[in-house]
């Protein structure tokens, strides 16, 4: 296991270097001179320009600049936002819990519905239930989620008036963030109705973000389950006279879940991409909306740092998934 771990982490190093290269060159590929862009409309004297170039290190060779950048990044220095003058990393940490909360609840929603739906579809293979579940999954998989979000807003916020349109919690409630997760913080605050408010703000974004993973998980669970159900050990379990739910729920499902776990892990990257759209629609103050806003405000240090941080998060998530996969499926480690 340790050898597997070391090998897997070793593979990450070149990827990490590549990712830093991309985020480093991103800012240099942008049209225009960064120093002039920083100066804004007032303009600069040639002396001041040269001084700034020296201060930022732009007068040094490119590879030195890159090494400098890498060194700063390794120390957790991702630059400062032009708009807020805050360190990028601090802004990231302030907004990250909102995205994590949204993604984790969306994943619970997707797995919680998708796995049972896939299992039932496999068990009742060919029935109208199976066909409608798979039809719905294909529609979900093809869904433009930004449109789906708008539709849900029209129905639940507009016509039915059940849920709020945007934000994480009603402005009526205010409490200092403890964990950064609104559901937990609202409970800790002890204010009556705060948790309810946080939950009602969360529900539509979760459905929107969870739709595609839900569809993928349902399809994957169904096909993994179908494969497992035709295995000899399932027949043996049936022959022993075990109750049907025991055969399906324990003997079959446990093995069918192995590929599903990988799918769930790989969907985390999809979720982070989906968060860009979901957070924009619902004005959810997380990483996705922050990055989109920064692209539009041309706050390039934020885009640069955020791009790198998001890539690192995805790399870490993928590493954890691989390790988990190695734990539950010993055959992988041998490879």
């Amino acid at each position: 296991m340790l050898a597997f771990l070391i090998k897997r982490i070793g593979l990450l190093i070149p990827t990490f270097i590549g990712v830093t290269l991309i985020s480093f060159f991103f800012i240099r590929l942008l049209p225009g001179d960064p120093v002039i862009a920083l100066a804004g409309e007032r303009g600069l004297s040639p002396e001041r320009y040269a001084e700034l170039m020296r201060n930022f290190g732009f007068d040094r060779p490119l590879y030195i600049q890159y090494l400098q950048y890498l060194w700063e990044v390794m120390q957790g220095n991702f630059g400062r936002s032009i708009a807020t003058k805050q360190p990028v990393l601090r802004e990231f940490w302030a907004l990250f819990p909102a995205t994590i909360e949204l993604s984790v609840v969306a994943m619970i929603f997707a797995a919680g519905l998708g796995i049972p739906a896939g299992v039932f579809a496999a068990v009742k293979r060919g029935s109208w239930f199976d066909q409608s579940i798979m039809g719905a999954a294909l529609v979900g998989y093809s869904m433009p989620i930004f449109w789906w979000g708008l539709l849900l807003i029209i129905l639940f916020s507009g016509i039915l008036q059940w849920t709020p349109v945007s934000g994480r919690i009603s402005l009526m409630y205010f409490f200092p963030p403890v964990t950064g997760f609104m559901l937990i913080d609202s409970l800790l605050s002890g204010q009556s109705g705060a948790f309810r408010s946080a939950l009602s703000h969360l529900i539509l974004p979760v459905i929107v973000l969870g739709t595609i993973p839900l569809a993928v998980i349902a399809r994957q669970t169904r096909s993994a389950m179908l494969e497992v159900l035709s295995e000899d050990y399932v027949r043996t379990a049936r022959a022993k006279g075990l109750a049907s739910f025991r055969v399906i729920g324990i003997h079959a499902l446990r093995n069918a879940l192995i590929p599903v776990v990988t799918t769930i892990g790989l969907q985390m990257g999809v979720l982070l991409a989906g968060a860009i759209l979901t957070e924009t629609i619902f004005s959810w103050p997380g990483i996705g909306k922050w990055l989109v806003d920064s692209v539009f405000k041309r706050d390039y240090p934020v885009v640069q740092g955020g791009l790198l941080l998001v890539a690192v998060v995805i790399m870490v998530v993928n590493l954890i998934v691989d390790l988990l996969y190695g734990l539950i499926n010993p055959r992988v480690r041998a490879r």
């Binding site: 290269l21 989906g274 990055l291 989109v292 692209v295 998001v310 890539a311």
Partner: peptide, 15 residues
């Protein structure tokens, strides 16, 4: 290719 895949596709396209 690993590097390209390390970014969420929409984010990379956006940037």
């Amino acid at each position: 290719m690993d590097i390209i895949l390390a970014f969420p596709s929409l984010l990379l396209a956006l940037v």
